[in-house]
């Protein structure tokens, strides 16, 4: 059962150099209760996709469904009441928190705006409960952001996102700014929160090992397009799209006997004037003439979806 679904979603930006096709015809779905990992290099459109799905930015065209309902053109009061069901956690917790507000203030705002509690007592109980789930204590309520460590700040951000008991959370590189020992702690807490609050995640990251550990399903993006999507274990065990294969080969493993190759040469092409045909064709080791001509559709193959002419 899909919680979130997009249909041919496009988000283009105008720039001096031309139209940036940040998200270019993406149909993706998040199943209820799952963690969908989204990976890709910088500029592939993964962050824009997350924000467009939440309607933090307006899509250029295409459809967005939430819980079966078309929300593409929802606005005003209807959109506001939907806001509490979907939320986002950003990469940098320092800029996501207001330095003049305490943790209490940060949690208080959403609860009051969305009329989630009847009494101060209930509110406090709820705040403490959510803080505990994130491994923080009631005493942290009176702290200001500068009194918290980086990991604690990010846990406050996640607590704030979770305090409205959303159904869907976009996590946009939530641990990239943190130390590894803190990162693993946050991942564990996210996993615990997922089961406790029955929330579904879209986990966006460029850290492929990390996504591997946390995702049920995986989507791989390249230059605004979804190139492969399916069961995370399947894709990690046997990546099919040439880009996915090359990307995984670039990831260093914590094993001195295994050295990475550098199969991806050159840079990601600019999303202004992306190549005709398959966007990956210019860097693809298996590119054929058809690849430069036609853009491959996302088709079912090997129990997943792949956008590559080789699998027609």
């Amino acid at each position: 059962m899909n919680l979130v679904e997009t249909e041919n979603l496009k988000k283009f930006f105008d720039s001096k150099k031309g139209t940036v096709k940040a998200v270019n015809d993406v149909s993706i779905n998040v199943i209820k209760g799952e963690t969908l990992g989204v990976v890709g290099e910088s500029g592939c459109g993964k962050t824009t996709l997350g924000r467009t799905i939440l309607k933090l930015i307006k899509p250029t065209s295409g459809k967005i469904y939430f819980d079966g309902k078309d929300i593409t053109n929802l606005d005003g009061e209807d959109m506001r009441s939907l806001r509490k069901k979907m939320n986002i956690v950003f990469q940098d917790p320092v800029s996501a928190l207001n330095p003049q507000m305490t943790v209490y203030d940060h949690l208080n705002r959403p609860l009051v705006i969305h009329n989630m509690v009847d009494s101060e007592e209930e509110k406090l109980r709820r705040m403490v409960d959510i803080l505990n789930t994130m491994g923080l204590k009631a005493e942290h309520l009176i702290r200001y952001p500068h009194e918290l460590s980086g990991g604690q700040k990010q846990r406050v951000c996640i607590a704030r996102a979770l305090c409205l008991e959303p159904d869907f959370l976009v996590l946009d590189e939530p641990t990239s700014a943190l130390d590894v020992s803190v990162q693993s702690k946050i991942l564990k807490l996210l996993d615990r929160a997922k089961r406790k609050f029955k929330v579904s995640y879209m986990f966006i990251s460029h850290n492929i090992n990390l996504v591997r550990a946390i995702s049920d399903r995986l989507g791989v993006m390249y230059l605004g397009k979804l190139v492969e999507i399916g069961d995370s274990t399947d894709i990690f065990n046997e990546p099919k799209h040439p880009y996915t294969q090359a990307l995984f080969k670039s990831v260093p493993q914590p094993d001195p006997d295994e050295k990475v190759e550098a199969p991806l040469t050159g840079q990601v092409p600019s999303p202004v004037n992306p190549p005709e045909g398959c966007a990956f064709a210019p860097r693809c080791p298996r590119s054929q003439s058809v690849c430069e001509r036609d853009n491959p559709d996302l088709i079912e193959a090997y129990g997943r979806k792949i956008a590559c002419h080789r699998y027609k």
Partner: peptide, 11 residues
């Protein structure tokens, strides 16, 4: 850097 660029750089 991205992993693909990192791989080139380490090489």
């Amino acid at each position: 850097l991205d992993v693909s660029i990192q791989a080139q750089f380490l090489k």
